[in-house]
Amino acid sequence: MSTKKHDLDYLIGTLPPEIAPTTDLWNGIKPHLTSQKTHQNNVVRPLWAIAATFLVCSLLWLTQWRDEPVRPQEQTLTQVQTANVTPATIDTSASVEVDNHLIELINQIAQTHQSQLDGFIRNQYTVSWQLSANNNEHIQTDIAKALAELESASVQVQAALTQQPTNQQLWQLWRWIMQRQITLLQQGQKLPFTHTRPSKGNTL
């Protein structure tokens, strides 16, 4: 029994610290991808054109024709305001539109990034250090704390960005935080701690 356990420990010890294929798989994958792409191109192109036209029409409908009915009193007020409209207000409405698109982009980036993080976290074996809340390993807790802080920071910056979507410095800060999260998870994979699987499920 002990020999078997020893063998298992030895085999675990021989595993690479990072999950990576032993041979370069790209050479095998590439021809399949390119052949599929050329084959599907003719079918996909019209679909894209239809989708793009639909998107443009929807956006036009949303921005131009989807005005709510205006009551008579409000209508006169709107007319007065329209008469006094200045280039500055036109700029404002244009910038609001740009802001809305940017906010959508921010949400999309946040979702993509979250799915990337989930990809790491789903693989609980490689990030088992993160699951050991009761473990006294201070480095593990340091990393878990840093990840929690980065996550909270990312939420704060994302909220700030939705208020100021054209703020370049905030974008840079957000990008750095997201990069740091990924780097930290990668560092976690390489850490030389005994990977212990939780006996009662995750304690995240």
Binding site: G13, N136, E137, H138, I139, F193
Partner: peptide, 10 residues
């Protein structure tokens, strides 16, 4: 060089 996995902190 340390073992690829070990227990114990700093």
């Amino acid at each position: 060089k340390l073992p690829r996995s070990y227990q114990g902190g700093n």
